[in-house]
Amino acid sequence: MSDTFFPLRAGLLASAMLAAPVIISALFATPAQALIVFDPSNYAENVLQAARALQQINNQIQSLTNQAQMLVNQARNLASLPMSTLAQLQSSVQQTQQLLNQAQNIAFNVQQIQTAFASTYGKAATSASNASLIADARTRWQNSVGAFQDSLKVQAGVVGNIPSNSSAMTSLVSASQSATGALQAAQAGNQLLALQSQQLSDLVAVLAAKGRADALEQARVTATEAQGQQQYKIFSTRSGYQPGNVTMFSGN
């Protein structure tokens, strides 16, 4: 029995040893496409590329934002001032000019002044009659009175411009302080300068009207003194008193 058992056992063991590689190969055999391999270096490179791409996108977005803000700023700088006081200032200047043009008798005209001084304010003629001298004196007096009246009218007109100028100045200062861009600030500044020029022109008009009145009055006084001297000469060169018979009452 023992002789039969050992050869059988040896055959079974040999068969098992031959079948083992086949079984192990069957256990570990898997399809090639199902095999997953993780490469750390490749993964890190992909992450870096994605980060760089994202950074580029962020940079482009920031650049577009800056360009949009630049366009907004340019639009603000090119925006015009929503108000203008030019018409109001021009109206004030025209009113003052009209008052100066209404100057009585002797206007603000070089030719008229020369003519008036040659005929009325010059030296009295030795052959002038009393009536002529009195007429010239009356003309000079009327010129002085008219000049003082003109001066007062100009002063009143300039004083009347003060409220409108004050309102314009307040509006322009407020507009300048709230300007959204360079153009609005510049326009507000230009209109403030125009307002200042208009006020200076009013001041010049007042000084001119006052100076005209003072000059005509001084000329009148001087001409009156010269006329008085001429009249005295005429009176002193006349012959002495000649007595004569005067009948007071008619005789019966």
Rank of each mutant, 00 (worst) to 15 (best):
A179R: 06
A20C: 12
L152T: 08
Q98R: 03
A223M: 13
E217I: 03
M248P: 00
P243A: 14
D214T: 12
Q49Y: 08
A215K: 15
L64W: 08
A205W: 02
Q227N: 15
R138N: 11
A34T: 05
E45P: 01
M83R: 10
Q98V: 03
I134L: 08
Q149Y: 08
Q149D: 09
S197C: 01
L27M: 07
Q98N: 09
N101M: 02
A107W: 00
R238H: 01
A188G: 11
L195F: 04
R138C: 01
V154Y: 04
S144R: 00
S92T: 11
Q69P: 01
P40Q: 14
T96Q: 01
D3W: 08
M70I: 09
E225A: 14
E45M: 06
A194M: 11
A219S: 15
D214R: 09
Q98P: 00
A34H: 04
L54C: 06
Q227L: 10
R9I: 07
A156K: 12
Q60H: 05
Q74H: 13
A107C: 05
A50M: 05
Q199A: 14
A79K: 11
S2V: 11
T85S: 06
W141V: 02
A103W: 00
S25E: 03
P243T: 09
A137P: 00
L216M: 13
Q177H: 03
S151K: 04
Q242K: 12
P163I: 08
T85G: 01
E45S: 04
T170L: 05
S176L: 07
V93E: 04
A188Y: 04
F6Y: 05
T139K: 06
V158S: 02
F6S: 14
A179W: 03
L71F: 06
V221E: 15
L152R: 15
V145R: 02
F38Q: 09
S236V: 07
L12N: 04
K153M: 07
S2H: 13
A118P: 00
F38W: 07
G160L: 08
M169E: 06
A118V: 04
A103T: 13
P31N: 05
G157C: 03
V47C: 03
Q218N: 15
S176T: 01
N101P: 00
V110I: 05
A219N: 14
A29G: 04
V173P: 00
D214G: 02
N42S: 10
Q69Y: 07
A116Y: 12
S92A: 09
N190E: 15
L207F: 03
A107T: 09
A213Q: 09
V206A: 08
Q149A: 13
L200S: 12
Q90H: 02
T222G: 15
A182G: 01
A118F: 03
V246L: 08
S239N: 06
S197R: 11
Q49R: 10
T237N: 10
D214V: 15
A34D: 10
T30N: 05
T180V: 13
A179M: 08
A223T: 14
T65W: 04
R52N: 10
S171F: 00
S178Q: 12
I234A: 10
